[in-house]
Design a protein around this nucleic acid. Structure first.
Lengths: 248, 248
DNA sequence: TTAGCATACTGGTTAATACCAGTTCTATTA
DNA sequence: TAATAGAACTGGTATTAACCAGTATGCTAA
C-alpha cells in the first residue's frame, strides 16, 4: 500500500487525494451509497493531515461525487448524481457527451456593430464592433440548431474561418488564441416558432416550435466575452441541467 | 470597531463573517469589482483565524458573491453574477422572484400506481403507490403552466388538499411535515405542442408550443422524492439558469 | 531612461492540535 | 426485559504556524 501521494509533486496533495478517491469511485472499487474511509482513517493511511483530507472531500462534494452525513460518515453519491453539476460546455463538447458527432456549417464571420441591447449585455461602449459568427450546428451530419455568436474581442484580435474550421469549438479558440477562459454563464431558455428562413436552414416546416437558448458567457475575470443565441429543433434537442438547493 | 463576531453564538463564526460580508455587498458598502480587505487584514480586524476567514470566503465564492485572483486579492462579483447560482426553487419561490403573485388551482390529489418509467426514476418497487398531484399554476391569477407531481412517500404519510391550500408550496410541506428537504434535482427542458385538453386548461390554442420541464428531485439523503412535469405557456415563461465551468 | 530584480504585498497549500456536535451501539441499571 | 447512560465512533468548527506561488511596485544598476 502506502504513498500514492507524492509530496514533491507540483499538483497539490489535496488534489492528488481527490483524484485518487475519484478514481476509486469511477472504477467502482467504492460503490454508490458505500461509506468511504473516515477522515481519521485516511489521515493515517496516506500520511496527510486532516485539513488536507477535508479539502479533498470538500472538492469532491461540490462536484457531486460524495456527500457527508454528520455523525455517520462520508458516502459515495449514487451514479446518476455524479454526472453534470451544471457544467458550462461548448456545443461541441455537449454533443460529444450525447454520443453524437458534432459538425457545423459556417455561414458567415464578420465584424458588426451590435444592437444596443447586446452591447449593454457585453458591457462594451455603444458603437464598438464585435465579431458575429453564424453557424448551422449538426449532429451526425444533420441540422440540430442555428447558432449566432457575438464575441467581444480586444483591438487587433480576430477569429478567422480557418480557426473555426480547424478546432470546431469557439471556446477552444478563445482559450488557446486569446487566453480567455470561459468560466461562467447565464442562460435562458424559452420556446419560439421558426421563421421561414430558419425553417429552410433547419429542414423543418415554418411555424415549427424551436427551443431558444440565449447565453452570456464570462471569462476568468468575470468579464462578458460572448453572447450567443441558439435555436434548437424541438425534435432533436433536450436541455439537461442539475440544480442544488442553496445551503443555509 | 470590534466584534461583530459573537464567539458564543450557535451560528458558526465563519457563517457570521460570511453574513457580514454579504451584507456589506448587498448594502453596497463594498462595490462590484472592488477589492475586499485581505485575509490577513480581516484576521486582525475581527480576531478570527485565517482558516476561518478562508472558509467564509470559500462559501461566498461558491455562491457567486466573491471571486479571488491569486496574488492580487479578493473582489466583489459584479451585480449580475450574484443572483441565482442555479438554485433549486419551488414554483412558488420562482414566481415570487420574478415579481409575480403565485397561485394555483388544484385539479386532483390521489394515490396512483405510477408507470414503470416513473417508478424506476423514483427508485421504488414496481406497483408501489405514489401521490399524484395535478395543478394549474397561476401568475397574477392567470394560467402559466400545468404541473403534475409524483411524490414518493413513506407508509402512513399523506398530503392533503388542506396542506396544499394552506402553504401553496409542495416543498414546504415536504420539509415541515415529513422532514424531507429537497436539496438537488436533475432537470430537462424541451419543447412540445399543446394537446387539446392542455390548450383548454391554459387558455391557448391547440398546437401552441409549450416548454416542457421535467424534474427529478432528491432529498438530503440523495433519495429521489418527487418527479414533476411542468408544461409552461411559451409566451409567459422563460427559464433562467447559471452555469459554471468545471474546475481543474 | 530603462530593464530588471528585490521586496512586500496578495491568495494557495499543508501541518498539528483541540474541542464541539451529531450518531450508533453497548453495557449498565431499573 | 427494557430503558438509559455513556463510550466510541462519525463529521464540524476553530486556532496557530509555516511556507509556497503569483502580482505589483519601486529602487537600483546598466
Amino acid at each position: 500500500m502506502s504513498s500514492l501521494i507524492d509530496p514533491d509533486s507540483s499538483t497539490p496533495k489535496y488534489m492528488q487525494l481527490a483524484n485518487f478517491i475519484k478514481q476509486q469511485i469511477d472504477s467502482e472499487v467504492w460503490l454508490p451509497r458505500q461509506m468511504i474511509p473516515s477522515e481519521r482513517q485516511l489521515e493515517s493511511q496516506y500520511s496527510v493531515s486532516r485539513p488536507t483530507i477535508r479539502q479533498a472531500i470538500d472538492y469532491l462534494e461540490r462536484l457531486g461525487y460524495l456527500y457527508r452525513e454528520h455523525g455517520r460518515g462520508t458516502f459515495v453519491s449514487p451514479r446518476k448524481l455524479q454526472k453534470g453539476m451544471q457544467e458550462l460546455t461548448s456545443f461541441s463538447e455537449d454533443l460529444q457527451q450525447r454520443g453524437l458527432q458534432p459538425g457545423q456549417i459556417i455561414r458567415s464571420i464578420a465584424w458588426v456593430t451590435p444592437s444596443e441591447n447586446i452591447a449593454r449585455r457585453l458591457e462594451i461602449p455603444a458603437g464598438t464592433q464585435v465579431m458575429q459568427i453564424d453557424r448551422i450546428r449538426l449532429g451526425d451530419e444533420s441540422p440540430i440548431g442555428l447558432q449566432t455568436s457575438f464575441v467581444a474581442l480586444a483591438p487587433g484580435e480576430e477569429i478567422t474561418q480557418a480557426d473555426l474550421e480547424k478546432s470546431g469549438s469557439l471556446y477552444r479558440i478563445l482559450e488557446d488564441k486569446f487566453n480567455q477562459i470561459p468560466t461562467e454563464a447565464d442562460e435562458t431558455l424559452e420556446t419560439t416558432l421558426a421563421t421561414v428562413e430558419e425553417a429552410v436552414l433547419l429542414h423543418i416546416k415554418p411555424d415549427a416550435p424551436l427551443l431558444l437558448n440565449e447565453r452570456l458567457t464570462y471569462n476568468q475575470y468575470r468579464r462578458p466575452i460572448e453572447f450567443v443565441k441558439i435555436l434548437y429543433r424541438w425534435d432533436r434537442y433536450r436541455y439537461v441541467t442539475r440544480l442544488a438547493r442553496k445551503s443555509s
